[in-house]
Design a protein around this nucleic acid. Sequence first.
DNA 1: GCGTGCTTCTAGAACGTTCTAGTACCCGAG
DNA 2: CTCGGGTACTAGAACGTTCTAGAAGCACGC
Lengths: 343, 343
Amino acid sequence: MPPTPAVPDGRRATLADVAAQAGVSVALVSIVMRGAKGASPATRERVLEAARAIGYRPDSRARMLRSNRTHLLGVQFEIQEPFHTDLVEHLYAAAESVGYQIALSAVAASRSERQAVESLLGDRCEALILLGPQAPAARLAELAALLPVVSVARRLRPPVPGVHVIRTADDEGARQAVDHLVSLGHRDIAHIDGGKAPGAADRRRGYRTAMNRHGLADRIRVLPGGLTAQDGATAADALLAAGARPSAVLAFNDACATGALSTLFRSRVSVPEEISVVGFDDSRLARLPHVDLTTMAQDIARMAELAVTRVTERLEASDTPTGQDIVAPHLVIRGTTTAATAG
Amino acid sequence: MPPTPAVPDGRRATLADVAAQAGVSVALVSIVMRGAKGASPATRERVLEAARAIGYRPDSRARMLRSNRTHLLGVQFEIQEPFHTDLVEHLYAAAESVGYQIALSAVAASRSERQAVESLLGDRCEALILLGPQAPAARLAELAALLPVVSVARRLRPPVPGVHVIRTADDEGARQAVDHLVSLGHRDIAHIDGGKAPGAADRRRGYRTAMNRHGLADRIRVLPGGLTAQDGATAADALLAAGARPSAVLAFNDACATGALSTLFRSRVSVPEEISVVGFDDSRLARLPHVDLTTMAQDIARMAELAVTRVTERLEASDTPTGQDIVAPHLVIRGTTTAATAG
DNA sequence: GCGTGCTTCTAGAACGTTCTAGTACCCGAG
DNA sequence: CTCGGGTACTAGAACGTTCTAGAAGCACGC
């Protein structure tokens, strides 16, 4: 059955059209559409039928314009960043469960953070959830003066008042990874770090702390790395060239780890038999069957849920203080780690 | 300097606030804000200054509500699909260049296509750009009755009236891939196919056609595959088990190709020395340094540009017929193909 | 007969913008 | 001095919704 193309002329159907069709007032149709109370079951049915007949669909702009609330949470994310797209997926679910909607605004090569945020503000989002924002603290403060802001996966030092931060316990994650390797009997554990990437300093510190705690201070070896596969590959080259090869490597993140893996494969060093490798993030990459990387998983679902909660509770009670939520990561054991060979 | 927190109470500043501040009428402020003509340079400056002072920001909802045009193109995409996110990136650029804006609506585990599209319709998008839509033809026809619709990367058979299709010449791509391998001296070229995935039939056909054309009809070997890395790995296992190993493999897509690669690595079959591998899509995966996959690139920028063009030209002149645009792919030679070893 | 209270419904004003149809003014031509 | 025609500006009505106030109807208790 064809979907009855709206009203006579090209316009989309409005409340008034439905009202005319059903022979009631506009206000009553509004009541029915919102599911508010104040309409008898009989008319309710009649109105709904009329709406269906002429293909009425509420206009969210008009709706938001009138009711001062938009119930819109603006999300800025990097469209090419798998970690961000994972988060977005969970944000949809989290927002829906508390009666809010998500407005997406991507950052891409052709679209700056500034543009992304401006567009969200123009849509009158009630709050901003920024994934890994690069904006300077001053800019964030400026935004925070306007509406509740939360920064996910980007630590702010010093904290910016009005901006709540949600991040993974990077140091704790690195410690867990080292603990895992040590429990497998490894002692020569190297770390390919993330340079100046967000979180890199914490992971480096976590690695050092754990090594010290296990009495392996003299085995600490930090190789300059980065957040791309290329960085990992280069670092692994350096590692092999150096001669004394460690029995395990903790990489800054999964991309870096896969880069290292590829170097090892090419050099016919078998993983995990000759060397164990641990990544960080539990990205899609790590889960690919031929990568099958042991890694520290960030609790993305939890982070998304926290982001929505923090922001909505500030909308409801505007005096809620901002702070920081640090989410614990957990180890996911896959195929790139195994017990150290004796000796 | 602090960003002067809007108007006395909590409200966001409106045209009326700016008007009051600058001592002019609301209509004039509107003129200045739109950059329309009808204001003297002097007042223009004064109004802009007032707007800046109280932190005015236009309300896009009200703006769209009043002017019948929204200049909004709704884009439905799979948030986890790298091919889609690549497209989105180019869509932003393409839309901007013709004065339209993009409204994103993601499909995810927790969000169905229906929800995604409903939200776009509620925002009163003027047209829909659907990336790889799964919706049945009837549903698409229903949407097409409402507004211009274009389906990217999803062939519709039979064509749905009102829905324009933009897709890659999959058969042509497979032929080019085979040509490349043949030109390198390969003759035993197998194809790991995509089963029932969109485009798979065309790529299979292109492979067969090319093999025939090169007089290699008796070397045709199609292995059941799929679109995941796992599918590729499994198919490669079968290939090796079968004994008579081909000298080259054309995989359905990059994910499938990397799956095959991993099996080959593990089985110590060196690529490309012993066997050449070609993927399809030129996804991010293919570009990773340790994958470095020769592949058929889809012309994403062109597809995005076409999507925007087709849809906007229908908005401007509603009688533009719908049809199909078939975009040529091109070969990207990387490290997984080389000349066949003699014999 | 008259208030009271409940349900069902409606008129009309908002929301922040753009657009239409003006008014007010100035300048030069007749 | 009036007319025409531009430029600078403004009042007020839209756009499609929600919300506030209140009206109409009805049953009930006195």
